[in-house]
Amino acid sequence: MRTATGHRLDAAWQALRLWLGATVLPAQCALCGMGCPEVLCSPCRAQYLTQGRPRCRQCANPLDDAARLCGRCVRQRPAYDATVTAFDYAAPVDQLLLQLKFGARLALAPLLAELLYVAIRQQQAWEAPQLLCPVPLGPARLAERGFNQALEVARPLARLLDVPLQPRLALRVRETRAQSGVAPQERQANLAHAFAIAPEHGALLQGCHVGIVDDVMSSGHTVHALAAACKSAGATRVSILVVARTPPH
């Protein structure tokens, strides 16, 4: 059994780790390791993060042509109405998200928000949401990690878009297993009834266009479940703003 002193030391170390991740500027590029005064060097940004590609307007999966929707969204529309992503979740740029999420390198969050903002500005006929909502973590996962990576991206993104942020709009009312550890055929059931809208914020959603912010979108079940909760509470449109999209296999 851990002692009270042990728990205090763990808390102190967690606080120090988060402070370092949030305040210490990197002396080298987060991808190639080359010395540079910014989080990402210009050559890596140009090589890995400036190549646009056609995507489904609803789920942001890559398309081979200029079609507006992929076959999956045509057959079965998800609860959300549009998705914008900055890049595919693939090597080497996936390291930016892994360093943020599992390395507590919070200084990467503004960079990721900026990349997402650039992708949003490139959308034709872009409809700005009226408020932003980060995908919430459950209490146990939040206590373990010490921060919500979706919220860390949503804060600077809200400033760039000049859209109000409501970090406590949605609640994760049921602890779920990480989707990455769940079989594909079980992922939708894993998130059933996982989200609810905070009662004190329910009035904000009446007739509202909500932007849901997350770090990575894979199967889409997480944002689908949260979008469905928003629409059940009165939202009329939900846009997904996600840093990276896992390409279909």
Rank of each mutant, 00 (worst) to 15 (best):
S219F: 06
Q206L: 14
V173S: 09
L205P: 09
G207L: 11
A150P: 01
L157K: 02
V238Q: 02
V182A: 11
E152G: 02
V210E: 07
L157Y: 05
L161W: 05
T176H: 01
H224W: 11
G207D: 08
S218V: 10
Q166I: 08
Q188T: 12
Q206Y: 11
A225Q: 08
T176Q: 02
A158F: 04
L160Y: 11
S218I: 09
L226N: 03
A183D: 03
C230L: 14
V173D: 03
V182F: 13
Q185E: 15
A194G: 12
Q188P: 00
A233I: 00
N190R: 15
L142K: 13
G202V: 12
T176A: 02
R145F: 08
L151R: 09
G211Q: 05
T222V: 12
Q149T: 04
C230Y: 03
Q149I: 04
L171N: 00
D162H: 10
R168S: 07
P167H: 09
H224M: 07
A225D: 03
A183K: 05
S239V: 14
A178E: 10
A158L: 03
S239H: 13
R172V: 01
N148I: 02
V163K: 05
L171T: 00
L204W: 07
V216I: 12
V182C: 12
H201N: 05
A178C: 05
V173I: 11
Q166L: 11
R145W: 06
F147G: 07
R172K: 15
D215P: 09
H221D: 09
A189M: 13
A183V: 00
P164K: 01
S219W: 06
A143N: 13
L151C: 06
L169E: 07
S218L: 12
S239D: 15
V238F: 02
A143V: 09
D215L: 06
T222L: 10
L142Y: 14
Q179R: 04
V216G: 02
A183G: 00
L171G: 00
E144M: 10
P156A: 06
I212L: 15
L204I: 00
M217W: 00
A198V: 10
E144D: 14
A196F: 05
A150I: 01
G207V: 10
Q166F: 08
R145S: 06
L165E: 06
R155W: 08
Q185C: 13
A143P: 04
N148Q: 03
G207C: 10
P156T: 06
C230V: 05
E200Q: 15
L151F: 04
N148V: 02
H201Q: 08
S180W: 14
Q206C: 14
N190W: 14
V173L: 04
